[in-house]
């Protein structure tokens, strides 16, 4: 994976709370057996009308959203199913980070494993972001800070090991494999 240090982009705002993974990528698109090409089905039921034409009212279909890499979403983003297809679809579409006041556990785990940053911020910062769609913001993974164009800089938490892997472009599997001797010892002790 490519190392990730900083993401600078204008934001797209989807203020709905509890945006679940069935909305991010509906189940009928889960029959794929690869990870690629899901971007075209991202938010499919909100993005397209019944006849398949883009829904002009949906934020991602508006010119202002073009090229944004940071999604600002309402509380509890990514709840529901464990489908990793959700971060795959967001990444394939072009997003590199999601900002909310809460991001569901499994989604957050899945996102980190694929290089999509789950950024959890306080309510005041979130409110500002919701009120300023399209704001140019910078997410700095090294310092774990989000900088807003109004000069504010706020800290966000990110799991230490996942951060280390993302900064250096490492795969977590390599670390687990480096512990296989411990795993074998654990298994041997269980058999006794």
């Amino acid at each position: 994976m490519e190392p990730i240090k900083q993401i600078h982009s204008k934001t797209v705002v989807m203020p709905s709370t509890n945006i679940d993974t069935d909305q991010i990528i509906p189940a009928r698109f889960l029959t794929i057996t690869t990870k690629v090409g899901l971007g075209k089905s991202l938010f499919a039921d909100w993005r397209f009308l019944k006849d398949g034409a883009p829904n002009p009212a949906f934020i991602l279909n508006q010119p202002a959203a073009a090229g944004s890499r940071i999604l600002v979403a309402g509380h509890n983003f990514g709840c529901g199913s464990s489908r990793e297809h959700a971060p795959w679809a967001l990444l394939d579409y072009g997003f590199r980070a999601v900002i909310s006041t809460a991001i569901a556990d499994i989604f957050s785990n899945n996102a980190l494993k694929n290089g999509l940053l789950p950024v959890v911020v306080d309510e005041t910062t979130h409110r500002w972001l919701l009120d300023h769609p399209g704001a140019e913001v910078t997410i700095d993974l090294e310092s774990m800070r989000l900088s807003l164009p109004n000069g504010a800089s706020v800290a966000f938490p990110i799991e230490a090991f996942a951060r280390h892997c993302l900064l250096s472009g490492l795969d977590e599997l390599g670390y687990l494999q480096s512990k296989l001797a411990d795993t074998a010892a654990y298994e041997a002790a269980q058999r006794k």
Binding site: S82, R83, E84, E159, E172, L173, L176, E187
Partner: peptide
């Protein structure tokens, strides 16, 4: 608990997962 497909791969390969204690 539920896991994503990358973690499914981790468990296949190592029978282990990296987890923070809830």
């Amino acid at each position: 608990f539920g896991i994503g497909s990358t973690e499914v791969g981790h468990v296949f390969a190592t029978q282990c997962l990296l987890q923070r204690k809830p």
